[in-house]
Write a protein that binds this DNA or RNA. Structure first.
Lengths: 219, 219
DNA sequence: TATATAATTTAGGTATGCCTAAAATAATTT
DNA sequence: AAATTATTTTAGGCATACCTAAATTATATA
């Protein structure tokens, strides 16, 4: 069995790999809030377990085995988030932190029961895809909200998680995955968006909009 | 924040203290499946934190602060057991192991939500009392099933947890807390019990009966 | 190309929590 | 009371996973 720390490293490598670009020791360390030297140490250990491949100064890559574990942890995390949200009413800006601890200790049996309770969902409360039992992720390319123009309407697909202040802010506007809105006005010079959401007109700053992704864009 | 190991030690000291008798290093170590030397080390650490008092060769005692933490962990454990059982249908012989891991990571917020969902219960699936938020345990003295005589009827109050084979065995007879049964016959020479439970007549070995406690005994 | 800067790795140290083996202390038996 | 036995504690080790500081390697600049 892997340690929690090792699982966190694999998960982080996967996520950074997804974002594209090479996953250097430094980037990984920064992401995990540890020092580069610590990341080097763990990478060495994961390498002996054949979960990552790594050439000095060249960045890390997950092996198939490593990727499978990373996806398992991510599945735990996202199912837990959704379960906490739906079954226990934990606010969406709190589920991430909670799931971060639970993902390492939940059994496959309990996970399967939560999965069933939730009706085999495919996205967590932030809209991120939940890998299936076999580690298959169905990725859908979403449109950044910042690409929207005046007069367009759409549906929120996903928002960045892990910043709970941002999530509370978005929640205040009802900007949850599945919610539809229309763009009323885009201020010039890369300014804020005025949108019509649930009958309300609200202004969303550009920095905030960068963290929102949408689907079903129509004129 | 305490480590998981430290929490386990406090919980174990509490439970052993409950059973009566002095809690020696050796007994504590055996209970936790570690060597006596390891227990000595942790006791020393807990002592510097003023969570236990300890005089060399004299056994450990929880301080008020230590007892409060022990009860908090026990509350986590038992609420989790009941939640897993009622909300997710985890079989009662599996909830202990699962709760053992979760009790150290569950937040007070999630715990409060589970408590509410369960309607502020006072006993776990094995009939053990759940301490309240303030660490108050309402203990009820139960009667050992082995004290029962022919012709008496009663209601199962509590069974020992932590031995899942035993729990599966008892579950096979419907011998859950809350279930009523009557004693049909007690075999001589400290022999087995024949009981009438849910219309069925079943034989319960004495070694098994030792782990069952009952209430509401009537002739 | 040589040098300065940045990233990475190595080396050595800390804390936790377990271990074994030996020493110290207590309890029991003769 | 003395000797044996059992328990507890001390001493020293190991693995994990972090740290800092120094050495190495790569990259960018002059």
């Amino acid at each position: 069995m892997l340690t929690h720390a090792a699982e966190d490293y694999l998960k982080s490598i996967y996520k950074l790999q997804e974002k594209g670009g090479k996953v250097s020791t430094g980037i990984l360390a920064a992401y995990l809030n540890v020092k580069p030297a610590s990341a080097t140490g763990m990478i060495k250990k994961l390498k002996t377990m054949k979960l990552v491949s790594h050439k000095r100064y060249q960045g890390v890559t997950l092996t198939d085995a490593g990727k499978a574990i990373a996806l398992e942890i991510i599945r735990h995390h996202r199912l837990l988030e959704l379960y906490l949200f739906k079954a226990l009413g934990v606010p969406w800006d709190g589920v991430h932190e909670e799931a971060e601890k639970l993902e390492h200790v939940i059994s496959e049996d309990v996970e399967a029961r939560m999965d069933e309770f939730l009706g085999y969902p495919t996205a967590d409360p932030h809209g991120a895809p939940i890998p299936d039992k076999n580690g298959v992720v169905t990725k859908i390319a979403h449109i950044p909200m910042t690409d929207l123009r005046e007069g367009q309407s759409c549906v929120v697909a996903e928002v960045s998680d892990s910043d709970s202040a941002l999530l509370r802010h978005l929640g205040g506007f009802n900007l949850y995955p599945g919610t539809a809105f229309g763009v009323v006005e885009v201020a010039p010079f890369e300014g804020p968006f005025t949108i019509n959401i649930a009958g309300q007109q609200v202004v969303i700053g550009r920095e905030v909009a960068k963290h929102v992704f949408v689907d079903n864009v129509e004129e």
